[in-house]
């Protein structure tokens, strides 16, 4: 851990906020993508069995 001096709060919170936002973005993206894939597979399976 580097010595951040008196600005430790600023630097750490900047890194914290940014990584949190990026992480949330990635998680939401992946979750939505997975749901979309699943939904499409379901519908395609149904349309095949129905003829």
């Amino acid at each position: 851990m580097p010595d951040l001096g008196k600005y430790a709060d600023a630097v750490l919170s900047a890194y914290g906020v940014s990584s949190l936002l990026l992480l949330l973005l990635v998680i939401f993206t992946l979750r939505k993508g997975r749901a979309a894939r699943q939904a499409l597979e379901d519908v395609e399976k149904r349309s095949k069995t129905n003829g």
Binding site: T29, K32, G33, A36, R37, A39, L40, V43, E44, S47
Partner: peptide, 20 residues
């Protein structure tokens, strides 16, 4: 790229559901 793929799948799902 990933999100565009998601949007394509969502739209295709909707089209198939409409056909159903």
């Amino acid at each position: 790229l990933y999100r565009t793929g998601t949007e394509i799948r969502l739209r295709r799902t909707r089209a198939l559901q409409a056909r159903e």
